[in-house]
Amino acid sequence: MNYPAIKAIYIFEMSRMRRTLFQSIVSPVISTTLYFVVFGAAIGSRITEIDGVSYGSFIVPGLIMLSILTESVSNASFGIYFPKFSGSIYEVLSAPISYVEITLGYVGAAASKSIIVGAIILLTANLFVPIQIAHPFWMLLFLVLTALSFSLLGFILGIWADNWEKLAIAPTLIITPLAFLGGSFYSISMLPPFWQKITLLNPVVYLISGFRWSFYENADVSVYISISMIGVFLMICLILIWLIFKTGYRLRV
């Protein structure tokens, strides 16, 4: 293992976050606050409780997951797309570093950033509503696995994208709808039976359900199914990455 290389990539990527500290930290604080103003105050006054949890508290795990998903995908995709775009990728390609190490550096940094953002949202939310975490270990597990798998997905998108439009389109067209329809703001048991079945095709449902369970012990699907689904998703991403690097797809001509 070329540890200095992993460390170099990791630090380099994290320094982007330090440079854009305001954007990285203040923007999730503001958007979380807005969510609480809009959803908590406006909708929360109508839906007072879901499964015995106040609406404001209920949406917190979903809000965190939403940010984790979008942050992971955008950080990781940008992290690898930008050097491709600027040409500075030559250095990574000519370095004595394996695909595993490249992936660890970029994906590790992207996942770390989104976990930090998740923590900021949790702390901000805590100012507005009471939060309890029934299973801290499971919560961390869901958080880390989700951040990792969606950072991997972002990494794949960043390699695939050969222009800025493609880079921007996947998050808006796929991630955001999946995340919003994934039960961040409602329990899927509130949907008509037909839509409940359709919703189960959305992988994000499992993430949010499992994550919320680790807070309030109520879930739309069994926590074991949730964790298995994340596992499967992670495996798929890993296999895709492996194939990309094996063929040199879009990195080496």
Partner: peptide
């Protein structure tokens, strides 16, 4: 957006 020093340190690290 990187500084000269950090980009040179990055190169050194990348090569192990």
């Amino acid at each position: 957006f990187e500084t000269v020093l950090s980009t040179v340190n990055f190169s050194r690290g990348l090569f192990g």
